[in-house]
Structures are given as C-alpha cells and as structure tokens.
Amino acid sequence: MPPRILLLTALAMLAFAGNSLLCRLALRETAIDAASFTAIRLACGALTLWLLLRLRTVRQPMAGNWPGALALFAYAAAFSFAYLQLDTGVGALLLFGAVQLSMLLWGLWRGERLGLAASLGTALAAGGLLALLLPGASAPPLAAALLMLLAGIAWGGYSLLGRGQGDPLAVTAGNFLRAAPLALLLALTLLPRLSWDGAGLCYALLSGALTSGVGYAIWYSALPGLRASQAATVQLSVPILAALGGALLLGEALSLRLLLSAGAVLGGIALVLGSRQRRAGS
C-alpha cells in the first residue's frame, strides 16, 4: 500500500473512532444533551462538506436523497442517545457489528450465498454481540445497547442506499444538508430539556466538522487506493481504537466480557471478509 494511502486510511480510522470518543465525552462530561449534540453535529457536518465541495477545482453540486438523509438522521440520533449510557468501546463495537451484520443479512436476503467459513464467521459475530448483551454485572444497559444496534442498522442501510449514487462526497454533503433540519426538529420537540455549555458545543462542532466532515473526505480520498476487501477489513480497527481511547482518555474499563465479545465479533467479520476475498480471487 502506498504511504499516502496508508496515512489517509489511518487518519480516517482515527476520525471514525473519534466520533465515538467526542460524543461520549460531550454527553458524560459537559451539559450538552443528546438532541442538541445531534443537531449541531449534522449542521456543522453539512457546512463542512459543502465548503469542501466548493473548494474543489472542478465544482460538484450536492447530491443525495431523502431516503439516505432519513437513514443518516436515524443513525446520528440513535448514536447520540445511546452514548448517554454506553462506554465508548462498547458503543463502537455494537455499532460496527450491527453495520456489518445488517449488510451481510441484506446480501443473504438478496440471494448471496455464504460458504462454510463465512457462515461460521457470521454466527460467531452474531454470538459475540448477543454475549455482550446477556445480563450480568458488566452488561451494558439494554435500552442504550438496542439504540446503538438501531444506529448500526441505520448506518448499514445508509451505506447500501449510497451504492452507485455518484460522487460520495457530493452525496454525503446532500444527505447531511437534508438530515440537519430533521435533527433540528427533534431538538425543538425536546425544547424544555435542551441544554449545552461551551465545552459541549465545542465537542459537537469538532464531531461535525472534523471527525465527520473532514473524516469522510479523507476516507473518500483513500478509497480509490484500496481494494474492497482492504477497505472493509481496515474498519475492524475502529472499535479497538475507540475502546483504547475510552480507556486512556475517559478512564473506562476494558472488561473481560468486552474483550471476548470484541474478539468474537471482529474475528467473525474477518472470517467473512477473508472468505469473500478468496472467492473473488478464485
């Protein structure tokens, strides 16, 4: 892999993990509420992506569509409300696992066949998520965990809706622009409960502009230099980076349950991706 692509890929993965860290940090350590965080993140992301499109040598109009915007809004809102109670690493693992499994299940629904290794990998990943949700002292709150699973399913749907829609940056910018008013409406419905402070506002702006807007732009710059299997596999690092960041920066515990579940989920998905790569090369 060329050094430039390697650097861009590493920066993109750090940005994706940073979204989880910034959201959890804002909701745990500042006065901002989940609805305000979501609205500010999406509005700032839309503005950043619009500016990036305007700065291109060849200007590209914003694209996107309402189904994609609804899926993006559902992801962002469920993501924020789930992080009111979830630790960073647990949330990232639930999100990532749900994204990958929902896309795998969609492929099965459309008639895609899984070999033995891929079937075992899918079962292992699903079992890892279920094990994380089983009752116990280190189990995450069920309602918050289900919200994060919903966020992952919504992001999986968003990814599927975006296939073949044209320039990824233009599509994402258009979807962010459409989703921002939806987040504002959500915030208005919760107006008596809204709250924020300077620190919370800064974290939301950073999440929208840097780890969302700029992060996606970096990822789209790296994608042409990656094979599909590489692009999928490298994202296995995101929950690990988020868990390490939560432990180092927020003092969150790396429980044995989380470590075992992460091994099962990420190992299972790696099995599926590896079997796909072998089939593509045969």
Rank of each mutant, 00 (worst) to 15 (best):
M62S: 12
M62T: 12
A63L: 15
G64S: 04
G64H: 00
N65T: 09
N65S: 15
W66K: 09
P67C: 05
P67G: 07
P67D: 03
P67F: 02
A69G: 03
L72I: 06
F73Q: 03
F73I: 06
A74P: 07
Y75P: 03
Y75L: 09
A77E: 15
A78G: 12
S80A: 15
A82Y: 00
A82L: 03
A82W: 00
Y83M: 11
L84A: 09
L84K: 08
Q85E: 15
D87F: 09
T88H: 06
G89Y: 00
V90P: 05
G91T: 04
G91Y: 00
L95R: 00
G97C: 07
A98F: 04
A98R: 01
A98D: 02
V99S: 05
Q100C: 06
L101A: 05
M103W: 06
M103R: 14
L104D: 07
L105I: 14
L105S: 13
G107L: 07
G107E: 07
L108S: 08
W109P: 12
R110C: 10
R110S: 11
E112P: 08
E112S: 13
R113N: 11
L114D: 08
L114M: 14
G115H: 11
A118S: 13
S119C: 11
G121Y: 03
G121I: 03
G121D: 04
T122P: 07
A123M: 10
A123L: 14
A123G: 05
A123W: 04
L124G: 01
L124P: 02
L124I: 10
A126E: 12
G127I: 04
G128W: 05
L129D: 02
L129V: 11
L130G: 09
L130E: 08
L130I: 15
A131K: 11
L133A: 04
L134R: 11
P135Y: 07
P135M: 06
G136K: 08
A137Q: 15
A139N: 00
A139S: 10
P140C: 08
P141R: 12
P141Q: 12
L142C: 13
A143P: 08
A143T: 14
A143C: 11
A144G: 09
A144R: 06
L146H: 11
L147W: 14
M148E: 14
M148D: 09
M148L: 14
L149G: 07
L149K: 10
G152L: 01
G152W: 00
I153V: 14
I153K: 00
W155D: 05
G156H: 00
G157L: 07
G157V: 01
G157A: 10
Y158H: 13
Y158P: 07
S159P: 02
L160M: 13
L160Y: 04
L161H: 05
L161F: 10
G162L: 05
G162S: 13
G164F: 05
Q165H: 12
